[in-house]
Amino acid sequence: MIEILQWTTLIASGAATLSRIPNLVRRKNRSIFYALALLTLAILLSIDGPYLAVDALLGGANVANLLLRFIIFGAIFFLALRIAVGFGDSRGIQLIRGRTGMLALGIISAVLVVCFVLMDTSGSSAGLVDVAAKNQQNALLVEYYGAAGRAYPAYVCLAILPGMLRAIRNPLPALLRMSAALLAVGSIAIPLSLLFPLVPPGLGFLRFTVNYTAILCFVVGLALIWVASARAGRKHRPLAAKRR
């Protein structure tokens, strides 16, 4: 079940990335392509098989996990910034790109790296499950490390959430409001991941469900905007369409 969700998300995200290639060539909003490519890479690295393969190349000391965290940070930063700019949410932009946002990114990254360095990380293991199982200290460090890894995406999502909620109520075209709703669901789901340590072990599948649903919401929400924009482009800009 979890595998299906993982691969579905990977395929959706990969397809979304590929669909951005024409715009990449046209030099239109290229940062979205890069963010989606990073996101796809992150999803790939979060799946057992690919993780083990990549980590083997990087020395088998779980450096791939640290890499994964920073890839996620980068993807979410660019994506959220674009979304905030697109929806005209100046407060959101300020929170992401301003001093607070940079401070949050710096501190969280530092915590992440320090935890990683203090851990005994030998032995590839997706999600650092085996690393945590080694001893008490490692278990604690993995917990902090995980929390830090979730903290920055949560911060960014909370920053854009109010803008999304406002957009849902605006008299925008229906498709755009739908995508704003999907983005809002995603921005709620990711901060919820901060509560993961409180989830009883028996309900572990909830973690995966929340994580991948959030990503799916983001990818589908963005795809809807392109659908709406392509449709409107045909309707309102026949001249531009003819020129191509």
Partner: peptide, 18 residues
């Protein structure tokens, strides 16, 4: 004016995310 404002907002979305 309200219509134009909504239209502008929609166009900003497409410009940045389209």
């Amino acid at each position: 004016r309200r219509q134009e404002h909504d239209q502008r907002q929609t166009e900003t979305i497409w410009e940045n995310l389209g």
